[in-house]
Structures are given as structure tokens and as C-alpha cells.
Design a protein around this nucleic acid. Structure first.
Lengths: 207, 207
DNA sequence: CAGTGTGAAGCACTTCACAGCC
DNA sequence: GGCTGTGAAGTGCTTCACACTG
């Protein structure tokens, strides 16, 4: 398959969110125009995004909400359960796990880890916090798909290496650090400090 | 000034982080090569990014760490205090406020708001949670610069409108919703669900 | 000679415009 | 007639390559 741009994947998520709203409102069909309007993009962009994966619409009519949302869910791989381990029993992981749509979209917390002896063994959102040193051993049985890395910025790369050794192929990183992963492992970093600095820049350099 | 790409601003944040590390290690000069290596980009990109703002290096020598970090801090507007209000006294806001570099980069929490009567009046990370209905009134005296919006997805637009009415010109949004702001107001959205879906896509569509 | 600064070339995403189909 | 699907054109960011300077 042709390489799909990151921006396209992100828009598919947005389209899906609107399609779910239409489903809840029992609306059966929609158009690229309407999708664009509710997703902050253009009709042409919507059609182009979808065209990478097939032809899901009917000319002159638009898209079936049921079919299109099913197709997008399939494209995004949301038709199955994804087993998530949280590394760092802090607030970010906790916020993520209570995020609307986390369970709803098929993400399940398989285990929670920390390196802090104070936290290991304690309860955390219904899970007992495990020693991160056990990750590799646990992973054999737990078969986690995704690791959420939510620890302070020291030695983050060591934890990434551990996650990779555990055979996990996808990492969502919240630590403000640049990280290396081998080919075949996908890393996404959410850097809140950087977003704030982007706002600082915008406030400083507005006309 | 010529319009600066978002990606350029984000890289400046990354360069600054590395420059601060060099400062801590008492290293006085660096090069575009080194900056690129530690920022996950190319030397040409580093030089191009900086060239939008001036000529900070010396040919044949490289960049002074002290001068360059000062310049980038200036460009990003980090030379002053930014007053931040948190809307939503939950875990995300709390995680953000304890983020390394939040205070360090000049961001200060001016106030915390919520709409939930259960939370209003309670203590939250050293602040007493205020009623969000009071935001507009408080803003006159508090003069906040940035609003962090960390509430569930219902009626987020209403809160955005309130923030805009309060005269705040920058919003960092964590709710998974598409939002409209008038010109002159900068909105950045961090959507964790979308990032997870991006990982799901990558896992599903890898070769 | 080493490393910056920058016009030009390359590349990737977006927008256009229209043929094609319901 | 209306709306999709898509090659082609447009736009903007990235990479190249080299003149220039300490």
C-alpha cells in the first residue's frame, strides 16, 4: 500500500468521531461537504483521504454513515482489542485511562508499572502497580500491544529500550525527550511543554 | 515578519531543550550538526529554522550556546511570565502543572476553575477551585494569558466562548472536540485518543 | 578548512476542476 | 442534477549544494 500521511490518519479519527455522532442521532447518510464542515477541513480533502483506501461513497448521494464508519474503524484497526501497559503510575496515565473513548475504542489496560518502590504494590485505578523490572517477563503472558510512557524525563531511553525488548511495537510517550526506536516500532510523542511554548510564540509574535 | 511554520516553532523548542542541557554541562559552543543529531532532524533544517530569525552563528565555528539559547528563548517569548488558568480541576491539568519545565519556562498557574459544585471551593494543588462562571469577572484582575481546557467533551465550545469573552488569547485544549475560535485567538489541541488511534493504525498497517 | 547562511531544487500534502456515476 | 473519485496544478516545507566567512 502507498504510504499514508500522518495528517490523513489523524483526519480519519476526526471523521469517525463525527460519524459516531451521526449514528447516535440516527442519521443514515452524509457527504464530504458535511464531513469537512465538522472536521475543519475541505470536501476535496475528505474525498482524497478516503480515496487512498477505496471508494466508499455513491456519486450523487454521499456516504452511508454505517458503512463509512465501519470502514474507517477497520482502516484504523479499531475492530479489535488493544492491550495497553502504562509505564509510570502517575496522573497522566490515569487521565488517559479515564479518557472518554479509551475503552470505547477497544483500548484496555493490561497492567500498570512504576520504578518507584513507594508505588509498587499499591492500587492505581483498579490495578496493582507492578515493578517495571518485570515488564519483559510479564509481556510473554500479557502480550501487550501498546506502551504508554508517562515518567519524568530522566533515563526515558532506558525504558524505551526495555519496552522494545519486551516486544511491544507501539509507544505513546509523554516525556519531553527525544527517543530512538528500531525500525518496526512506532513512537508517538505528546509534549505538553512544547505545545505551551507554541502558544507563547503565538502570543509573542502576533501582529 | 514572514509566516513561520508550526514545525519550525516546535523544533526551536527541541533545540532549546538541548541547549539547556549543554549549558548544564558547561559546553560553550555547538554546531548545526550536533543540534540536528540531538533533535532528530538535519543540519540544513536547523540552519534554515534559525535563518528565519537572524544569523546567530559564526561560519567555521558554530553557535555560542549562551547566545543561541537566549535568542531562541526570546523568539519563543519565554523571557516573561505567562499566567495560565486551568479550566477543569482534574488529572490532566494537575499533570501539566507538575510537568518539568512548566514553572521553569515561566508558566504560572493563576487560577483553577471547574463547573462541578463538588469541586468548587476544594483545594487542588495548592489552589482553591473557583466556579468557572466567575472566569470573566476574575480575568479583569488576574489578566491570564493562556487557558488550559481540560474538561470532558460536552459543551466544550461553550467554555471556549467563555474563555474568549474573558479576553484570553491562547488556549491549550485537551478535549477531543473540534472547536472554533475567532481570529487573534490561538488554539492548540492535544488529542490523546487520536494519538492512540494513530498507533492502532500503524500496528494494523505495518508491512 | 570547517561550518554557517541561503537560493534553488525536490518532495509531499492540499486544492482544483472536471469526468463519471447514481 | 448532485456528489464522488481523481489526475493535474498549486503550495509550502525540506533537502541540496555551494558561496562565503572566521
Amino acid at each position: 500500500m502507498k504510504r499514508i500521511a500522518d495528517s490523513t490518519v489523524r483526519r480519519l479519527s476526526i471523521y469517525l468521531r463525527y460519524l459516531e455522532e451521526l449514528t447516535a442521532r440516527h442519521i443514515a447518510t452524509t457527504s464530504s461537504d458535511e464531513l469537512a464542515k465538522h472536521s475543519g477541513t475541505t470536501p476535496a480533502q475528505v474525498r482524497k483521504d478516503l480515496s487512498f483506501f477505496g471508494s466508499f461513497g455513491k456519486r450523487g448521494l454521499g456516504y452511508s454513515v454505517a458503512e463509512l464508519s465501519g470502514r474507517i474503524r477497520e482502516i484504523l484497526g479499531l475492530g479489535r482489542e488493544w492491550r495497553v501497559v502504562i509505564i509510570g503510575a502517575g496522573k497522566i496515565g490515569s487521565a488517559l485511562s479515564t479518557y472518554r473513548g479509551f475503552n470505547q475504542r477497544g483500548f484496555t489496560i493490561a497492567a500498570v508499572y512504576d520504578a518507584d518502590p513507594q508505588k509498587i504494590g499499591r492500587r492505581w485505578d483498579g490495578h496493582v502497580v507492578r515493578d517495571v523490572a518485570e515488564l519483559e517477563r510479564d509481556a510473554v503472558a500479557d502480550a501487550p500491544d501498546i506502551a504508554v510512557l508517562a515518567i519524568p524525563a530522566d533515563n526515558v531511553q532506558d525504558e524505551v529500550d526495555r519496552i522494545v525488548r519486551a516486544g511491544i511495537k507501539a509507544i505513546l510517550n509523554f516525556a519531553p525527550a527525544r527517543l530512538d526506536v528500531p525500525p518496526g516500532v512506532t513512537l508517538k510523542t505528546v509534549n505538553m511543554a512544547m505545545e505551551l511554548e507554541g502558544l507563547s510564540f503565538a502570543l509573542t509574535n502576533r501582529d
